[in-house]
Design a binder for these strands. Structure first.
Lengths: 232, 232
DNA sequence: CTAATATTTCGATCTGGATCGAATTGTGCG
DNA sequence: CGCACAATTCGATCCAGATCGAAATATTAG
């Protein structure tokens, strides 16, 4: 009866507890098999398969066969974005599934959002890039400046490679806890991958939490300093 | 079976077509009666009432009795935010309920997001405030600079009044069409209200679309100039 | 090829919740 | 007070879809 995008369709997909659990599990960015996801969601393999079929058709997840396993992952950052915002709202509603624990604080500090860094550290990264004129807005899109491109290269990011692929390099993703944008896009993913490779940070098993090593945090803070009050 | 916020609960609320229509209708920012919403959703009064009860309990809408009518509105900007992002994703999925028409182009240009300006004009406003150093980031939050406070006063916004109320003055809302943040918060609301009062823009009946008058647009462009490539 | 494991399909069941119309309650108007 | 209209409650119906177990199918390992 109405105009506008069909939000009911996709909200209904997320609205089932089993599917929501599946999607939440995939927010870690790791691709998981159908049986693993069945376990996460607490349902039988057959029901999980049915749910995955639906999510697939709905464009929320994608599959990748690999050997005898079939791996599932979120279809893209758009999906992660939607889930982030939903989580942010649900959390704000005070309807946390489990009471707020120490794990939660860690998630606010640093976590992975599908494949890029989120949480306070993610925001720090985003702000720092702006503050140092490494990133800027042109029209409606984010771009790295010349200086910014040089900068990320010093961090070991193959920038030319990123540009070659058709995926957007810089993109905004809204933060779960702080309600502030942070850096997504292929650059966001590449940077986080570098942090992992350089041993600055690592993922906590079976969680979205990201743990910085003490030395890694120092290096991170040097690479992405914060100058309060000088956004731009 | 999992950690993290209960997104299924709220997604399920949005996931019903009738409720989604109700929420979409409320995105116009206007408060509507139960019967009006029933009409929007295309269901009987009794079912609408039931849905509204659910939405109320779920914290997505709030009610305000006024005379013999009971007006419903979105519970807050958080809700509008969630709906915006969902719409953005659904639209990107190519699952528009109706094919993209002229109306749609107008929505991209300027529309109301709950109570503040969104679309290209909303982004222009947001960017311009940054470019002219009227708004800045301190830590995780947005603030108006001294100059910015003076500026909005020249537009007729009672800034002190905004600060007095406990609601956040500046807040980010992610844009539906352009995937870029724009200004929400009580300032976003106040500014849009001023645009209406000054006759710069008016809402198109029964739509979220915002139409600028030709003179109003000129004034708007003067007040919020765009300097491409100089974000900050 | 055969065995083992992963995944999907099928058939059957069961239930939450969406829906409506009629009756009831609530509120303001005259 | 009583009428008119708004809104909710109630009772009844009905169905999409969530679920499972078992059987069928795929895929790799040996």
């Amino acid at each position: 009866m109405k105009h506008g995008p069909d939000i009911a369709r996709i909200a209904a997909l997320i609205g089932d507890p089993a599917r929501a659990n599946i999607l939440s599990a995939l927010m870690s960015g790791k691709a998981l098999t159908a049986s693993e996801l069945a376990g996460e969601a607490g349902v039988s393999a057959s029901t999980a398969s049915s749910h995955l079929g639906r999510l697939l058709e709905g464009g929320l997840v994608k599959e990748a066969r690999q050997g005898r396993h079939k791996y599932f992952a979120l279809a893209g950052e758009d999906v992660a974005q939607v889930l982030e915002v939903l989580m942010g709202f649900a959390a704000g509603q005070g309807h946390l599934r489990t009471r707020t624990g120490p794990k939660d604080a860690q998630l606010r500090e640093a976590r992975v959002c599908y494949n890029h860094l989120a949480g306070s550290r993610g925001i720090q990264l985003y702000d720092s890039l702006f503050a140092r004129d490494f990133m800027e807005l042109r029209g409606d899109d984010l771009f790295l400046t010349e200086a910014g491109q040089g900068f990320v290269r010093t961090l070991g990011v193959d920038f030319d490679q990123l540009v070659k692929s058709r995926a957007p390099v810089c993109r905004t993703c809204l933060d779960w806890s702080a309600r502030r944008p942070h850096l997504a896009g292929s650059l966001g993913r590449a940077l986080f991958k570098r942090f992992e490779m350089m041993g600055w940070a690592y993922r906590v098993r079976d969680t979205r939490a990201v743990q910085f090593s003490s030395d890694g945090l120092r290096q991170f803070n040097m690479a992405f300093p914060v100058n309060p009050g000088s956004h731009g």
